[in-house]
Amino acid sequence: MLNDLNTLMQIVGKEVVRTVLGLIGVFIVVLGNAIVLTWLERKVAGHIQRRIGPKEVGPYGIIQSFADSVKLLGKELLTPANVDRPLYFLAPSLIFVPVLVSFVVIPFDGFLQVKDINVGILVILAFSSLTVLSILIAGWSSANKYSLIGSVRSVSQNIAYEIPLLLSLLSVVFMTNSLSLRDIAEAQKGLWFVFYQPVAFLVFFVAGVAETNRTPFDLPEAESELVAGFHTEYSGMRFSLFFLAEYTNMFIVSAIAVTFFLGSYQGPVLPGVVWFFIKTYALVFILLWFRWTFPRVRFDQLLNFSWKILIPVSFLNLLVTGGILKL
C-alpha cells in the first residue's frame, strides 16, 4: 500500500497526490462538520431552552441530522414558475465554491494542510466575498420580494463587515510579516496572539458572526420579518446546500480565529489536530450560544455598529500595533 503510494507519488508528483488526497479529506470534513454541527446546534438549543433536544434517532439523537440529510436528498426539487432559471440553479452551487477553497489553506496540523500558499489569508478573504454574490443571485433569481430584501440586506451587511474583518487580521499580519497561515500558526509557539491583540480578536469575532449571518446579525434570513430570507424559494437539496454552506462558514470563521489568535494547532500533550478541533468547536459553541440568547439587531443599528464603532476601533488598533512594532 505504502509502496504503491510512493510509486504513485513518483509518477505524478508529490504535490498533485497531496492535493487530491487533501481535497477528498476536505470534502469529508465539510460534510461531517455540517452533520455534527446541526446535531450540536439542536442539542445546544435544547439544553439552553430547558429541554433535551433530539434523542430518539440513535443514541442521544446523533443520527438525527444524518437522517434529516437523507430526507432532504429524497425531497422533490421544486422550481417556482417565474424564477430566473439559470441564476436560480447556479446560486446554490456557487455558494459552495468559496467554502471549499477556504479549507485548502487552513492548517489543521503542522503537516495536515492541503496546500500552504504564501498569501493564504488573502485567498480566504477573497473567496469568502464570493458568498455574497451567490446570496445576491439567489435572492434576485427567486422572484420573491422577501428573498430580494434578504439578499440586499446581506450585501450591505457583508460589505460593512468585511472591512473590520480584514483590518483586525492585518494587525496580526503586522506582527508575523507573513500572509501564510502556516507561518502565523508557527509564530504562536510561545504566547497566543489573543494576548497581544485582544481588541483585534474581539473585532474579528464580532465581524465574523456578521459575515456568517448568524444571530444577532441574521438579518438576511430574519425569520420573523422575511420568512426565510434569500432561500425562501429553495427546497430539497438546493436548500440543504445553503444550509451546508452556512454551517461550514461558521466552522471557517472559527478556524481562522483559532489560527490567528488562539495558537492554531499548538497545545501540550494531545496531537495538534485534536487541539485545533477542540479550539474551533469551542468557538462554534459560542456562536451557537449567541444565537439562542440574543434577539436580532435592527438593520440600521447593524450598519452603524460597523461603520461607526468597529471600523474606527480596528483602524486605531492597527495604528497602535504598527507604532509599537516600529519602536
Binding site: T215, W292, F294, P295
Partner: peptide
C-alpha cells in the same frame, strides 16, 4: 414578543 425580535429562547422560559 422577543421571538418577533429574533430571540427565541424567552419563548420557552415563558411557556415553562
Amino acid at each position: 414578543f422577543p421571538a418577533d425580535l429574533g430571540g427565541l429562547t424567552p419563548f420557552l422560559y415563558a411557556f415553562d
